[in-house]
Structures are given as structure tokens and as C-alpha cells.
């Protein structure tokens, strides 16, 4: 079933089929007739036929539905909102976060806490950044509000760990420096659109 077909909610235009149900019998004789008709036409066996058909399908034609989860995983959508990732600048490798505090401000669950200080070159640096995943509701506001695309949502949805702190420290969420080449942009809210290069005719400084 295609997506358009699935999203079509105009009742009556789809391929609905009316069941030819008889009205419920009220008299005793009508009920008796219904019981006899249903028993003799072996309606019960239809259910047995369906389950046997599914079993043969599964066994002979390999049409199993099971995904053996820890060993094989279903693909998730690119805009899936799981554990956050902190991105780095591609050129310098420095983290993108400028310590503006917008994510801390907008977080409806009050899960983000950050602290900043002036670094050696009088540049604002993040000295502490934690997300309390006991509170986080994965709403995606932080990624949406971030002006630098620094905090985004990743695809790590297996959030069981021995300690909650295991994935809430800034360093843990930051892209490892040796994997900078393979860093991907998050296509969710607030991200640069795919055809951004063609949309922008001039650099903003030209205005």
C-alpha cells in the first residue's frame, strides 16, 4: 500500500466492501435457524483454514514476520528523535556549540543544564553540558532552536545502560574527533534544507 493510499481518509472512495450480514434474529425460531445454518455451513472451519494457510505460508514460503531484534534491526527514519548528538565543525574539528543557552532555555522538561566561561582567546567556551535523560521527553525543541546545528537528535534508541550518566555527558554525545569525516547532518527540524546551495543566491554579507 502506497503512502498516498494510506493517507487517503475520504471514507467511501476506498475499496471498502460491505459484509452481507443478516439482521440479528430476535425470535427463538430465528435464533435456532441461525444456529443450524451456521453449524451446517461449517463457518467455524473458515477460521481453521485461515490459520493453516498462514502457517503453510510461513513454513513453506519463508514469509515470517519476525525480526530477530538484537541481531537484526529495522531501519529507522532519518528524522528519528533519539539520544542527542553534539556535532563538530568540519573544518577545524572544534565543537559547534557557542554556549548561547537557547536549548537550556527552551527545554520544556528542564533537562538540559549548561555552564560556560571565557576561554583563553576570549571566546565563550562550554565548560559543562549535561542532558538529564531521566527527564528528557525527546521533543526535539533543542535541536530546532539551535542556531549552529550543534545539538541534534541521533539514531541511538537503545537507551539501556548501567548508568544514566553514560550518555548524558557532553564528551559522550560529541562526535569523536577521528570520525569527523563520517559526521552526518541531521535532516530534522532546523536543519539546512537539501537544496540550500541552489536556494541561496548570494552570501548574506552582500545585503
Amino acid at each position: 500500500m502506497s503512502l498516498e493510499h494510506f493517507k487517503n481518509r475520504n471514507v467511501g472512495t476506498q475499496n471498502y466492501r460491505m459484509l452481507d450480514l443478516d439482521p440479528t434474529p430476535v425470535t427463538g425460531w430465528g435464533q435456532f435457524k441461525q444456529v443450524v445454518r451456521r453449524s451446517l455451513s461449517l463457518e467455524l472451519l473458515v477460521g481453521l483454514k485461515v490459520t493453516l494457510r498462514e502457517m503453510l505460508k510461513a513454513l513453506l514460503f519463508g514469509k515470517m514476520h519476525t525480526t530477530k531484534y538484537p541481531f537484526e534491526k529495522l531501519p529507522i527514519g532519518p528524522r528519528y528523535r533519539a539520544i542527542h548528538e553534539m556535532k563538530r565543525l568540519l573544518e577545524s574539528g572544534h565543537y559547534r556549540c557557542i554556549g548561547c543557552g537557547l536549548c537550556e532555555k527552551i527545554c520544556p522538561a528542564d533537562a538540559i543544564r549548561m555552564d560556560t566561561h571565557y576561554g583563553e582567546n576570549q571566546r565563550k567556551e562550554v565548560s559543562e553540558y549535561t542532558i538529564n535523560f531521566g527527564r528528557c521527553i525527546f521533543c526535539g525543541y533543542c535541536a530546532e532552536v539551535c542556531p549552529e546545528l550543534a545539538i541534534v537528535h541521533g539514531g541511538r534508541y537503545e537507551t539501556a545502560s548501567e548508568q544514566r550518566a553514560s550518555f548524558s555527558l557532553f564528551e559522550d554525545m560529541l562526535t569523536p574527533i577521528d570520525q569527523l569525516k563520517s559526521q552526518r547532518e541531521f535532516p530534522g527540524y532546523g536543519s539546512v534544507s537539501v537544496n540550500a546551495d541552489t536556494n541561496i543566491k548570494k552570501t548574506p554579507l552582500a545585503y
Binding site: T51, E54, M55, A58, K63, M64, H65, T66, K68
Partner: peptide, 13 residues
């Protein structure tokens, strides 16, 4: 196993 196959699952594996 049989119930799993009839629902096109794998059952204990």
C-alpha cells in the same frame, strides 16, 4: 512453535 507459525512468528529459537 505451532502457535508461533500460525501467527507467522518464529517461536522459541
Amino acid at each position: 512453535k505451532v502457535l508461533a507459525f500460525m501467527q507467522r512468528r518464529l517461536g522459541p529459537m
